Simulated assay, not measured.
Amino acid sequence: MYRSSRMGEPGPPAPAGHVPVLLDRVAELLAPPLARPGAVLVDATLGLAGHSAALLTAHPQAVLVGLDRDQQALRISAERLAGFAGRTHLVHAVYDQLPRVLAELDLDRIDAALFDLGVSSMQLDRPERGFSYAQDAPLDMRMDAEDPLTAEEVVNSYPVPQLARVLRDYGEERFALRIAQAIGRRRAEHRLTSTAELAELVRQAIPAATRRTGGHPAKRTFQALRIEVNAELAAVQAAIPAALQALTVGGRIVVLAYHSLEDRIVKRSFAELATDRTPPDLPVALAAAGPQIRLLNRGAEPATEAEIAANPRAASVRMRAAERIREAA
Rank of each mutant, 00 (worst) to 15 (best):
Phe84Ile: 10
Arg87Phe: 12
Arg87Tyr: 09
Ser77Arg: 00
Gly83Thr: 10
Leu74Asp: 00
Leu64Thr: 11
Ile76Ala: 14
Asp70Glu: 13
Leu74His: 00
Leu67Val: 13
Leu90Arg: 00
Ala73Asp: 07
Leu67Arg: 14
His89Asn: 03
Leu90Thr: 02
Gly66Ala: 05
Arg80Pro: 13
Ala73Gln: 03
Ala82Cys: 13
Arg69Val: 13
Ala93His: 04
Val65Trp: 00
Phe84Trp: 12
Ala78Asp: 06
Leu64Met: 01
Leu64Glu: 07
Arg87Leu: 11
Thr88Pro: 10
Gly66Phe: 02
Gly66Trp: 02
Arg69Phe: 10
Leu74Cys: 03
Ala85Met: 06
Ala93Asp: 06
Leu81Cys: 11
Leu67Tyr: 09
Gly86Tyr: 05
Val65Asp: 00
Arg80Gln: 09
Glu79Asp: 15
Arg87Gln: 07
Val65Lys: 00
Gln72Val: 15
Ala78His: 07
Arg69Met: 10
Glu79Asn: 15
Gly66Arg: 01
Phe84Ala: 08
Ala93Met: 07
Phe84Lys: 05
Arg87Glu: 09
Phe84Asp: 08
Gln72Ile: 14
Thr88Val: 08
Val91Gly: 01
Arg80Ile: 08
Phe84Gly: 07
Glu79Leu: 09
Gly83Gln: 12
Gln72Ala: 15
Arg75Leu: 11
Asp68Gly: 13
Val63Glu: 05
Thr88Tyr: 02
His89Gln: 04
Ala73Arg: 02
Ala78Asn: 02
Asp70Met: 04
His92Leu: 01
Gln72Ser: 15
Thr88Ser: 10
Gln71Pro: 12
Arg69Thr: 13
Glu79Arg: 12
Ala85Lys: 05
Ala73Met: 11
Thr88Met: 04
Leu81Gln: 05
Arg69Trp: 11
Gly66Thr: 07
Leu64Gly: 04
Arg75Asn: 12
Gly66Gln: 04
Ala93Cys: 11
Ile76Cys: 14
Leu64Cys: 08
Gln72Arg: 15
Ile76Glu: 15
Arg69Ile: 13
Thr88Glu: 06
Gln71Ile: 08
Asp68Cys: 14
Ala78Pro: 10
Val63His: 07
Leu81Tyr: 03
Gln72Asn: 13
Glu79Ile: 10
Val63Asn: 07
Ala73Trp: 05
Gly66Asn: 02
Arg75Val: 09
Leu90Phe: 06
Ser77Asp: 14
Val63Gln: 08
Leu67Lys: 12
Ala73Asn: 12
Thr88Phe: 04
Ile76Phe: 11
Arg75Tyr: 06
Arg75His: 09
His92Cys: 05
Ser77Gln: 05
Gly83Asp: 12
Arg75Phe: 05
Ala85Val: 10
Glu79His: 14
Ala82Tyr: 07
Gly86Ala: 00
Asp68Arg: 07
His92Ala: 03
Phe84Tyr: 12
Gly86Pro: 06
His89Ile: 00
Asp68Thr: 14
Gly66Ile: 05
Ala78Leu: 09
Gly86Ser: 09
Leu67Ser: 11
Arg69Glu: 14
Gly83Glu: 10
Leu67Ile: 13
Val91Arg: 01
His92Tyr: 08
Asp68Trp: 06
Leu81Trp: 04
Ser77Thr: 04
Ile76Pro: 07
Ala93Ser: 09
His92Gly: 01
Ala82Asn: 14
Gly66Lys: 00
His89Lys: 03
Arg80Asn: 08
His92Phe: 03
His92Trp: 10
Val91Met: 01
Leu74Glu: 00
Arg80Met: 12
Ser77Phe: 05
Gly86Lys: 02
Ala78Trp: 05
Arg87Lys: 05
Gln71Asn: 09
